[in-house]
């Protein structure tokens, strides 16, 4: 038994590590390192800062009462904390020492400090402000992006609606279609086309008026001129377009005044109902149930 016990003991025994004795080599290395550390010439700035700190500390530390002079003063009746002489307002602390090693005028140092403080304050407050601004800016950018995306979505949805209503609409001459005959939901598309045409025409008219005065240039533009003439038909026609564009269109203006997402939603709802088309799935479903489409809103498609 005793044997087994000792065996157990042996198994459990913790082999205590001897406290590390420094070998002579280690010691020599350590000492050498320490010496080098001491001998290493410190950078001047560091040295001076250290010096100044040491002097400051000394200047702020009162002499201890173990000082021989203090003991001699005690024998003359001095008590710790009292003052010399007979006047009541005698000094307790020695006068401080301020060194000056430049030629800065009186008040410059405090003026510098004041300016520095002001600047520091300003930098701080500006940093704070810019952080706030930064948050705003990010949010605004996000909104902008979102809106841009929705505008694109809207335009796509409108084009789809236009196509689904009338497959050949795009090939038609936009000027030939009275604007108000188009559903207000996508009327904007045709308006845009007309506006683009008008811009082109105005440009041509401007060039023509110029070329009429500069005959040498007129010939070169002849081809283009002809092309446009064919494309736009007569001036009378274009004036018709003008009238159509410039006519008041309350219905359209009302629609345009709505936020982008509302307009998009309106177009999307129209497409779902009439054409079983989902703007966000980008697909036309065979039946009214529209199985497979997560829902009639953008957020339903987010996941």
């Amino acid at each position: 038994m005793a044997d087994s016990e000792s065996e157990e003991d042996y198994m459990n025994m913790i082999i205590e590590e001897k406290p590390k004795q420094e070998t002579s080599i280690q010691r020599a290395a350590r000492l050498r390192k320490e010496r080098e550390e001491r001998g290493r010439p410190k950078p001047k700035a560091e040295l001076q800062a250290e010096q100044e700190a040491a002097t400051r500390e000394r200047l702020e530390t009162a002499l201890p009462s173990t000082n021989k002079g203090f003991k001699m003063m005690e024998k003359m009746g001095f008590k710790q904390g009292s003052t010399l002489g007979k006047s009541k307002d005698a000094r307790k602390e020695p006068i401080g020492i301020q060194t000056k090693d430049d030629r800065s005028g009186i008040g410059l140092e405090s003026e510098k400090k004041r300016k520095f403080r002001e600047q520091a304050e300003e930098v701080l407050s500006r940093a704070k402000r810019s952080k706030e601004d930064e948050g705003d800016w990010r949010e605004m950018q996000r909104q902008k992006q979102k809106e841009g995306r929705r505008m694109k979505d809207l335009a796509n949805a409108q084009r789809t609606a236009e196509r689904l209503e009338d497959v050949d609409f795009e090939s038609k001459d936009p000027t030939k279609v009275p604007l108000k005959s188009i559903n207000v939901l996508w009327r904007g598309l045709n308006r845009q086309r007309l506006e683009k045409l008008r811009e082109k025409r105005e440009k041509i008219q401007l060039t023509n008026s110029l070329t009429s005065r500069l005959p040498t240039l007129a010939a070169e533009n002849d081809d283009e001129d002809n092309d446009y003439k064919i494309a736009f038909g007569s001036a009378a026609e274009s004036s018709f377009v003008d009238d159509d564009l410039d006519d008041g269109d309350e219905e359209f203006e009302e629609f345009e005044a709505l936020p982008v997402e509302d307009r998009l939603q309106k177009v999307a709802d129209f497409l779902r109902e009439k054409h079983r088309y989902c703007v966000w799935c980008g697909d036309q479903y065979p039946d009214v149930a529209m199985e497979g489409c997560p829902g009639s809103t953008e957020s339903a498609h987010d996941d």
Binding site: A62, L63, N67, K68, G69, F70, M72, M73, M76, G77, F78, S82, T83, L84, G85, K86, S87, A90, R91, K92, E93, P94, I95
Partner: peptide, 21 residues
């Protein structure tokens, strides 16, 4: 009695302390 010598503006006690030391 240097401690109570009547100076018009007596210095800080530490000044006398150092001098004596």
């Amino acid at each position: 009695d240097l401690v109570h010598f009547d100076l018009m503006d007596p210095p800080a006690p530490e000044t006398l302390m150092r001098a004596l030391e």
